[in-house]
């Protein structure tokens, strides 16, 4: 464990807590893409298949449980909760899951470190996580106005993967034979997808104006 990875995990944890607090306290999910939340639940479900077979550390297991519980409860809130679901904008959140899931699955079948079910599922979860934010970014473009909590949520989500890149660089130089091209490339693609959002987020923060994405 290194400071970059710990900071990354804490930032990731903060992003799901910000989102859960938003939905739980103001009982609204306006501006949040259910498609992205469902994709994230799938990412964690396919990535943490080894939660009961491979014990890494107490920290690792607890964080996996938190991410699984939070992502599935956010999906539950947005689909089932009688008040929250009313604020879900399903006419705007129209991104088709399959357009992301199928290519990631096919890619994972061809590009993986080992052709085993667990490893292919793990690689699939990496590719899917890289693109899972797309429905959310599309929704933000459409609805244009971004409330603070949603902006913070997307920002933290992007920042966590950027911190992970620093973690991979650190591990590459400190651990012999630590090479995971698949992880590094998908993590880089993921961070780049947030780049334009970061640009507008920092500008709005610097000029102290409401965050607006161009049409």
């Amino acid at each position: 464990m290194n400071i970059f990875r710990l900071a990354g995990d804490m930032t990731h944890l903060m992003s799901v807590i910000v989102l859960l607090l938003k939905i739980h306290t103001i009982k609204s999910c306006a501006g949040i893409s259910l498609k992205t939340q469902e994709l994230y639940a799938l990412v964690f479900a396919t990535r943490y298949l080894d939660i009961f077979t491979d014990f890494i550390s107490l920290y690792n297991t607890i964080m996996k449980l938190i991410f699984l519980a939070s992502s599935f409860s956010i999906v539950w809130y947005m689909r089932q909760h009688k008040i929250v679901r009313r604020s879900y904008d399903k006419d705007q959140d129209t991104f088709r899951h399959l357009f992301l899931i199928l290519p990631c699955l096919l890619l994972a079948l061809f590009i993986n470190e080992k052709f085993t079910f667990k490893e292919v599922m793990w690689t699939f979860s990496l590719f899917l996580e890289a693109v899972a934010i797309l429905p959310q970014l599309v929704l933000l473009q459409r609805t244009r106005n971004i409330d603070n909590l949603t902006g913070q949520y997307v920002f933290l989500l992007g920042a966590y993967r950027a911190l992970y890149i620093l973690n991979w660089i650190y591990r590459y130089f400190t651990e012999p034979h630590y090479v995971h091209w698949i992880t590094w490339i998908s993590g880089l693609v993921q961070t780049l997808l947030y780049a334009d959002f970061f640009y507008y987020y920092f500008n709005s923060w610097k000029n102290n104006v409401k965050l607006q994405l161009p049409a």
Partner: peptide, 10 residues
């Protein structure tokens, strides 16, 4: 045959 090393990152 290296035993499948579990992924230690979240």
């Amino acid at each position: 045959e290296d035993k499948e090393k579990p992924h230690d990152e979240l």
